[in-house]
């Protein structure tokens, strides 16, 4: 049985750091370290004032086998801040945009709440905020990055499963992790160029 799993992980060649290309923020996740405690989800809800009933990050479960031969894996996820974001392509007003450092963000003043982006996102990363009449999603905690702090979910990750940084900086923790491990991404075939990399050996 699998639950809330949005596409399988596919093995890829890890991206090489490219310092000339400027900063590329990304997540590197070690699913083996995730204990499904959901501290990241609560932290995100509080940090980003996410309305009750919605969330910007989640833990996909992969459960297999029959008693007593069982396995259960957790795959933390949030917006993948894609390199070719389909959400941006379908947005009729340009409210969704991609920054040079890879962040895919929303200009809420321009969002008309048409929700095309919600349908376009293969990861189901977006939700409609009824109170504000706009679509919203994970921002990689851009306000915390501006203040020099890691995203809230990364900071509090009890299992130490979530890592964050600039994969174009060869000295960063994330670049080093990518260099040392087998690397997977969700829905590689969709051509979205996701910036959440899962590492496993």
């Amino acid at each position: 049985m699998t639950t809330n799993l949005k596409g399988m992980l596919t093995h890829i060649e890890p991206p090489k750091p490219n310092p000339q290309a400027g900063r590329r923020w990304a997540f590197v996740i070690e699913p083996d370290r995730c204990i499904d405690c959901e501290a990241c989800m609560v932290a995100c809800s509080v940090e980003n004032q996410v309305p009750v009933g919605h969330h910007r990050n989640w833990i996909a479960h992969r459960e297999k086998g029959k008693f007593p031969y069982l396995s259960l894996h957790f795959e933390p996820e949030n917006c993948h801040h894609c390199s070719n974001p389909p959400c941006e392509m379908v947005c009729p007003t340009g409210a969704t945009f991609r920054r040079e450092d890879g962040l895919v963000l929303i200009n809420y003043d321009d969002c008309i709440g048409c929700r095309y982006c919600m349908m376009a996102c293969p990861y189901d990363a977006r939700y409609f905020d009824e109170d504000r009449g706009v679509v919203d999603k994970c921002t990689f905690c851009v306000h915390r990055l501006d203040a020099g702090q890691p995203p809230a979910c990364v900071e509090t990750c009890i299992g130490g499963a979530r890592h964050f940084g600039d994969i174009n900086d060869p000295e960063s923790e994330v670049a080093k992790l990518l260099a040392r491990h087998e690397v997977y991404v969700r829905y590689a075939e969709a051509g979205t160029g996701p910036a959440i990399f899962y590492i496993m050996d």
Partner: peptide
Amino acid sequence: MSSTPHPEISAQSSPDSAWPYI
């Protein structure tokens, strides 16, 4: 399609809004 420049997202942040978020 309008294309507004978005140099830094923080520039368009709403004024500080503390608790609560619901």
